[in-house]
């Protein structure tokens, strides 16, 4: 019930967000600031996680494949496809829903509680637009870039693990990387990345913008941004998989 009411409120909110900016320069500045915050702020965690996932995938599969009929170079193939199809986009965005989502919700919610939003409204600023649109644009640009980085670092992690731990030669791993490559999966990865960035940002901004009460409510809003963001990402992941693979 609450969910349906929130959804209605969110849809009613959209026209305000996408109304014409009063000053392009200020929006541009805010977008750049957000891009910097999201991108630089999350780079290391994204690299760390994807590198480990790539490495663990390589080690696990080399163990499973050892002594079987499947050739060793399949490890490169598996690492590549697991990263492209699922890990790079979905895992990165789940992590970002935690990191970026909670920060955004807390930032906007804090502005609501400290009357910053009221102050801007009184000046005549369309706060729905000014506080949300730059974040949406920034995340749609930066998060797919982070996903790309996750993909590269993940494969690098797989490469290091496969060659140093599992005893593959670099040539074999590379052969695996080229094996049965379908560019369509890469397109799908970016479709997911863009969809998930929209989800992370809009859920977080919604939770922050309509917060009321005090610091306990602010914490709850931040938590909801993470939980609802992650759940929605998983649901969207499933829908995209069904639509684009079917």
């Amino acid at each position: 019930m609450q969910l349906i009411r929130d959804l209605g409120k969110f849809i009613a909110w959209l026209p305000d967000i996408f109304s014409k900016p009063e000053n392009w320069g200020m929006y541009y500045k805010e977008t750049v600031r957000q891009m910097y915050d999201i991108g630089i702020g999350s780079m290391s965690i994204v690299m760390l996680i994807s590198g480990f996932i790539g490495a663990v995938t390589a080690i696990q599969f080399s163990y499973q494949l050892s002594g079987g009929f499947i050739p060793d170079y399949y490890i490169g193939y598996i690492v590549r496809d697991i990263m492209i199809i699922e890990m790079a986009a979905t895992l990165t965005c789940i992590v970002l829903a935690g990191k970026v989502g909670s920060t955004m919700a807390a930032e906007i919610g804090g502005m609501r509680q400290k009357e910053h939003i009221d102050a801007m409204e009184i000046m005549g600023v369309n706060t729905s637009s000014y506080l949300v649109l730059p974040k949406l644009i920034a995340s749609v640009i930066v998060i797919p870039l982070l996903v790309t980085i996750a993909l590269i670092v993940g494969i690098a992690g797989g490469y290091i693990a496969a060659t140093y731990v599992a005893g593959l030669t670099p040539v074999e791993f590379e052969k695996g990387l080229r094996f049965l490559f379908d560019p369509y999966n890469v397109v799908m990865m970016y479709v997911k990345a863009i969809t998930f960035s929209l989800i992370i940002t809009s859920v977080a901004c919604f939770q922050g913008y309509f917060v009321s009460g005090g610091s306990i409510e602010l914490g709850q809003a931040s938590t909801r941004a993470v939980v609802f963001g992650s759940i929605n990402i998983l649901i969207a992941d499933l829908i995209i998989a069904l639509l684009l693979m079917g």
């Binding site: 400290k114 009357e115 910053h116 009221d118 102050a119 409204e121 009184i122 000046m123 005549g124």
Partner: peptide, 13 residues
């Protein structure tokens, strides 16, 4: 109208 309004908030904002 809001451009003609200035406001000082209780917590400064």
């Amino acid at each position: 109208l809001r451009m003609q309004i200035g406001m000082l908030f209780q917590g400064n904002a």
